[in-house]
Amino acid sequence: MRKVTKALLVSLLALFMAGCGKPRGNEYHQIVRTKTITWGIKTDTRLFGLLSVKSGKEEGFELDLARAMTKQMLGPTGQAKFVQTTAKTKIPLLLSRSVDVVLATMTITPARQKIVAFTHPYFAAGQSILVKDASPIKGIKSLNRHGIVVLAVKGTTAVDNMKKFAPKARVQEYDDYGQAFAALKSGQGDAMTTDNGILAGIASENRGYHLAGKTFTDEPYGMALNKHQPDLRNALNQALAALKQNGTYRRLVEKWFTGIKGFSVKEAEH
């Protein structure tokens, strides 16, 4: 029996390992051939990508940008397919090729650049904190105390940044922004932290909460794709540059971010 166990475990492992290092074809050629780009997007992030209760569809700046990018790259018959991701699942889904490109409030960081490739930035965000109006917390400095609980989302840069900026606080991680905010509302923590644009979206819909202090990091968002796909990367960068040039990009930024409290359209544009 023990031998059988061992053999099974080893073969199971071998199967999984075998899947990992597979060489990939040219993803850009595939995209052009199928006339379809599969985008990894958010469904829990107001203003960027949110599943709307009214229409039952995903809506937001990044959704519009993905559609515009698709048309720019593949012409009017190009299809944009959307796959929902969360902060924690976006890189695994990209690596497993469940999506072609991730366009999901993803910060370009050196650590991530070791694993995936990025386009030029398309949005300039910065980390901030969200608190109840009555909270004594004024900014990142007041978080660096023992006994403070900060709520964040699994797999975000915010989790790593907290180790640097407020190492004394305890961080609790959730699967998505909705769950993290629900936990804040229930008093499971003192503050919630992530990028300013995302927090501004939450604060704009929920009275009694505000962003405390200024942003304390730079979080340039980029579209992520698999490594060793120079054709796809160039095509994405060219399309983004074209959208910036012809005014589409600016129109989308203004459509989604004009008049949002604690947020400057000028700063967001990249």
């Binding site: 999984f16 924690k88 699942t89 699994k154 797999g155 991680e173 499971q188």
Partner: peptide, 24 residues
């Protein structure tokens, strides 16, 4: 956020990106 096995597996899987090994 109950800090159990599954929570830690998640946390390691999505910081190292070795998802399947972490769950194994």
């Amino acid at each position: 956020a109950g800090f159990d096995l599954m929570y830690q597996a998640d946390s390691i899987a999505f910081s190292t990106y070795q998802v399947i090994p972490s769950y194994l």
